[in-house]
Design a protein around this nucleic acid. Structure first.
Length: 592
RNA sequence: GCCAAUGUGGCUCAGGGGUAGAGCAAUUCACUCGUAAUGAAUAGGUCGUGGGUUCGAUUCCCACCAUUGGCUCCA
């Protein structure tokens, strides 16, 4: 019996399932070339090179063949070969990708193979004892994937699948997956009218509808307010600038493909502008307006910044990945001795924001480092400068006792990052918040301050977001709360349901009284039955419903119904508004 | 950008070489209703866009646009 709670055991089980899939495919289409096929978090995949694309019918065929292989209960045997023989074996089997893998193995590597029946695969293992041990599996999807993850290489076909020790667990996994997809912000956010897209506006350019715009507005006001209390200075800088600015910052060299450029980038005789992909070079100008002293530091500049990035066409996803977005961005210009304290301050602030909206518990931290061997001219600066900034960040993170993973080649072009990561309903991870150390750009812009000793010195800069990008955050909030946001950020906090048309006047009176208190209220003024109005208020994820009929008009009350607690009985307007206002003021969490 | 799938009234979907249907939503009318769907009627689509094949295309072919899942990239 396999211990599925143990990650190694689980991975072994699923890795063996991927070999069974590869074997099935080789039986069905022997000309298919094998690439790699590891276990992943929720299952496994295997990459194949085959001229024809795998269809959904093919997946069924493959599953059937896999069942046969399981039934055959083939023993899985490991053996080793010296390099030359290993290479020869894979050449004979017509597996060029495997040959390439062998050639790239370190000289002293043990080259092992796993054999099950007629199928032999180059593999480090470990594996199960026999194919019969695999009890329940399912192939989930096909996708393209570059050989060795490089877009310069051929695109292979990847088949994703998963497996479990029994059918029940597999069923539960599939059910949970379907349940998660119901929270998909891209579907729910459109249904609930948070946002929409229009073909002729363009990809990655969503329209925030009144409800979505409202949520973002209140998040933004809250963030700006808290930041101000935290000593931040709000700026408003232009949305675009001449290419000269980006030349200094390095964006022109390292980020031009990601920018929307207005005018001919290559014609030096003409003016050329670009929309800003980041706010850094603009905000530095604030520091540069006059001579600065060490007393001016830290200078915590923040801006609610709309940014423009020309993402490749296949990258866009709902509100999570867009071409225009608004971010709570900031640049802390600091003395080197203030680095640790200011970094900790940024992290605390981000944790406060994420914790309050309820996302922090599902976040993970990633220390994003440079990759000196990155072939694409991605990074600015020298090896020494990178080693210094990364060592500084490592020390800070370790001193703070933060648990994090390391992401190689995930750094910004000017420095290492602490990325706070979040996963969407498909399990895809993106950055929600980032805090970055930059020891390069101050020098490029000639940003100096006069230190105590009268000497000119270069400041450090922390680039940071606090609640990150509002569009993306909204997307995750919709997914986290399945569309029903906590009361304090709900676009519609109360829906008033008059029983009959005779109660309409009173309903509007109540609405206006609530609005006067700052509560977002609407009236369902249709001539429908109460049951229908409640049903639709629930579908629309409204938390509080106030029923108004003869009794309520007479008493001057409303009957309160909560989405979560059901009928709460009759209350006066003052009574219920105080309850609501307290819930709003304290930013109370809701059930999910 | 790359691999693949998809695109039929606001939404969910059926259909299919001879110019289109259902449910929900919408509108109107009747009902004036007490805690998750009242009934009836009406209106709404050049079948994503542009080419091509054909006597004839929404259906077949090509290109483009958009959407979806991945890859690469990234907040």
């Amino acid at each position: 019996m396999v211990d599925f709670a143990n990650k190694e055991e689980r991975n072994k089980y699923r890795h063996s399932t991927s070999h069974i899939m590869a074997q099935a495919i080789k039986r069905l289409w022997p000309e298919t070339k094998l690439a790699i096929g590891p276990a992943i978090d929720d299952g496994f995949y295997y990459d194949f090179d085959r001229d024809e694309a795998f269809s959904s019918e093919d997946l069924k065929k493959i599953e059937d063949e896999m069942k046969r292989i399981v039934k055959e209960n083939l023993p899985i045997e490991r053996f080793e070969l010296p390099r030359a023989e290993a290479r020869k074996l894979m050449e004979e089997k017509g597996e060029p990708y495997k040959v390439e893998l062998i050639d790239d193995l370190p000289e002293d590597a043990v080259i092992s193979f796993y054999k099950q029946g007629e199928f032999t695969d180059l593999c480090a293992g470990p594996h199960m004892e026999s194919t019969g041990e695999i009890r329940a599996f399912k192939l989930l999807s096909c996708a393209g994937a570059y050989w060795r993850g490089s877009e310069k290489n051929k695109m292979l076909q990847r088949i994703y699948g998963t497996s479990f020790p029994d059918k029940e667990q597999l069923k539960a996994f599939v059910a949970a997956r379907e349940e998660a997809l119901k929270r998909d912000h891209n579907k729910l956010g459109r249904e609930l009218e948070y946002f929409t897209t229009v073909d002729y506006i363009g990809q990655g350019l969503p329209i925030l509808l009144p409800k979505g715009a409202r949520v973002i507005q209140l998040l933004q006001r809250w963030v700006e307010d808290v930041e101000q209390k935290n000593g931040c200075l709000l700026t408003k800088t232009p949305y675009f600038a001449k290419r000269d600015l980006y030349r200094i910052s390095g964006h022109w060299d390292h980020y031009r493909d990601g920018m929307f450029i207005m005018g001919d980038a290559d014609d030096e005789s003409k003016e050329c502008f670009a929309l800003r992909p980041m706010t850094c070079p603009f905000q530095y100008q604030v520091f540069l307006t006059r001579q600065r002293s060490y007393r001016d530091l830290p200078m915590r500049l923040t801006e609610t910044s709309t940014l423009f990035r020309n993402e490749d066409s296949g990258e866009m996803h709902g509100l999570i990945r867009v071409r225009q977005f608004t971010i709570s961005e900031g640049h802390y210009i600091i003395r080197p001795d203030q680095l640790e304290q200011e970094f900790a301050n940024c992290l605390e602030l981000a944790k406060y924001f994420l914790g309050t909206v309820g996302l922090l518990e599902d976040c993970t931290f990633r220390f994003s480092q440079w990759d000196p061997s990155n072939p694409k001219n991605k990074y600015e600066g020298t090896k020494e400068q990178w080693e210094e900034s990364q060592a500084a960040m490592k020390k800070i993170l370790d001193d703070l006792g933060l648990e994090y993973t390391v992401g190689i080649d995930e750094a910004a072009f000017y420095g290492p990052k602490l990325d706070i990561q979040y996963k969407n309903v498909f399990g895809k991870e993106d950055t929600l918040v980032t805090i970055q150390i930059d020891m390069l750009l101050a020098e490029k812009f000639g940003m100096e301050y006069i230190d105590k000793d009268g000497q000119k010195k270069l400041p450090y800069i922390i680039h940071r977001t606090s609640l990150g990008c509002f569009e993306r955050t909204l997307a995750y909030l919709i997914e986290k709360y399945a569309g029903c946001l906590p009361l304090w950020m709900a676009p519609e906090q109360v829906r008033i349901l008059p029983i009959a048309d005779a109660h309409l006047d009173r309903a509007f009176e109540i609405r206006d009284a609530l609005r006067a208190k700052g509560i977002r209220a609407e009236v369902d003024d249709r001539s429908e039955k109460l049951g229908k109005k409640i049903r639709e208020a629930n579908i629309n994820k409204v938390i509080y419903m106030f029923t108004v009929g003869d009794k309520e008009v007479e008493e001057g009350n409303v009957s309160v119904r909560s989405r979560f607690e059901g009928d709460l009985g009759s209350m006066s307007i003052d009574q219920i508004s105080s309850k609501l206002l307290e819930e709003i003021e304290t930013k109370k969490a809701v059930k999910q």
